[in-house]
């Protein structure tokens, strides 16, 4: 029997491969609080360690008040100004 695949077509999304940095000294790091409990603590603590141990610049924090809503374009645009970013998924 020949069947129609019920999984549809491949996503058309372009493939992006970000170029890694040579190191983190002097890097401008953006951190995103996705609105989940403790998310701000998780990403800011990790970034603080990157400052202390790897010489990154003090992180700049952004946040979504509600984890179930996509980030506003204006918020995402702010990340263009950073060299690296730390974001999160989880509960």
């Amino acid at each position: 029997m020949r069947i129609i695949d019920p999984t549809g077509s491949e996503p058309p999304t372009a493939r992006l491969v970000p170029a890694p940095r040579a190191g983190l000294r002097g890097a401008r790091i953006g951190v995103l609080d996705n609105g989940k409990p403790n998310a701000a603590h998780v990403v800011s603590t990790v970034a603080r360690h990157l400052v202390e141990r790897f010489g990154a610049l003090p992180p700049v924090a952004s946040g979504k008040p509600n984890s179930s809503q996509p980030a506003e374009p204006v918020l995402l645009d702010r990340f263009r100004d950073f060299d690296a970013a730390i974001v999160g998924v989880g509960d």
């Binding site: 970000p18 263009r80 970013a85 730390i86 974001v87 999160g88």
Partner: peptide, 14 residues
């Protein structure tokens, strides 16, 4: 931009 996503282990597939 280099980005790291920090995630709890059970949410890795998502």
């Amino acid at each position: 931009m280099p980005t790291v996503l920090v995630c709890t282990d059970v949410f890795l597939p998502l």
